[in-house]
Computed example of a mutant assay.
Amino acid sequence: MQIDLTAKQALVTGASAGIGLAIAKGLAAAGADVTLVGRDSGRLDQAAAALRTLNLKGDIATVEADVSTAEGCNQLLVQLPVTDILINNLGIYSAVPFFEISDDDWLQMLEVNLLSAVRLSRHYAKGMQQRCWGRIQFISSESALNIPAEMVHYGVSKAAMQGLSRGLAKVLAGSGVTVNSILPGPTRTEGAIKMMTGLAAGRGVSVSEMEKLFLAENRPSSLLQRFATADEVANLCVYVASEQASATTGAALRVEGGIVESIV
């Protein structure tokens, strides 16, 4: 299968590292011109420079904006009013006992993980609908289906994101614009490595051993039995952004290593 996204404009939020950066790399390798969005100009510039050294087919641009806020979203929309492919990847997570999750914690989780995607999708979907082509993706999580007791607010925010994805797919029915959510499982990103490093230090084991312990204790149903790589998640995202995936919409697509105990 030859995926060709030449002449397509793509936008990836939270693209300075991790899954977002891997998706940006995959889209640009397929020919899309990709805009990386993040709030730290230094990290953005570093990420963009790293991608440019790979001589990818598509061009790489950056926009510094904190799209977890309405103001930051507006700043982005002014600088990039149109895109063909929108990857709502920005997200945060934190392990907090339920009874210690404050109202502010809940509001921040929803503002970052959900409302950023609402605001950007509300704007960009209109243009896609008018042009009769577009791809919108919401990077959710297996935690949306398997709400983790150690971070209920995160799981709820991702479950809400999947509801948003399905609802928007219905709004755009028959338009040529597809809308899907992507559900990664534990993925070896910068943030995950940092978390595993902290846990490993507390238990006197290596990071690789901690990953195995984490899966055994927190995700025992994993069939992959290891952390995925960011590129493995990005591969699915690139396909879903392609012309070949034109009949896939309104779906929750899992790349979580078989953690979710379901055959559908």
Rank of each mutant, 00 (worst) to 15 (best):
T187G: 12
A24L: 03
A70R: 14
G204K: 05
A65H: 08
K194Y: 02
D40P: 00
I92M: 14
I259D: 10
A144S: 15
G258N: 09
A10W: 08
V156K: 10
T178L: 11
G258A: 05
E211T: 12
S141G: 09
L76R: 06
S116M: 00
D104Q: 15
G167N: 12
A28S: 15
G191C: 01
E232I: 02
A24I: 02
T13D: 09
I193L: 14
N74L: 07
N218W: 08
L86Y: 03
N74R: 13
V82T: 13
R203P: 01
V264E: 11
I136H: 06
G20W: 05
A159P: 09
G20S: 01
V240N: 05
A61Y: 02
V118Q: 05
G155I: 00
E211P: 09
V205C: 15
R119N: 02
E100W: 01
Q225Y: 04
G198C: 10
G191N: 09
L215G: 13
G257N: 10
G204F: 05
A50I: 00
Q225G: 06
S116D: 00
A30N: 13
T69M: 03
A28D: 03
L215A: 14
A169P: 10
N55R: 14
M210E: 15
V177M: 11
L36M: 06
A49V: 01
S157D: 08
S222C: 04
A241L: 03
A216Q: 14
A144T: 02
L107K: 13
V78W: 03
P186L: 01
A201P: 04
G185R: 07
A216E: 14
L11M: 13
V240L: 15
Q162W: 04
I23D: 10
Q46I: 00
G18D: 07
A47E: 11
A32P: 12
S116Y: 00
L223I: 09
E150W: 01
L5K: 09
F98K: 01
A247N: 13
M151C: 12
G42V: 10
P186F: 00
A247K: 11
A252D: 14
W106S: 10
L224C: 09
S116T: 02
T83P: 11
R219P: 01
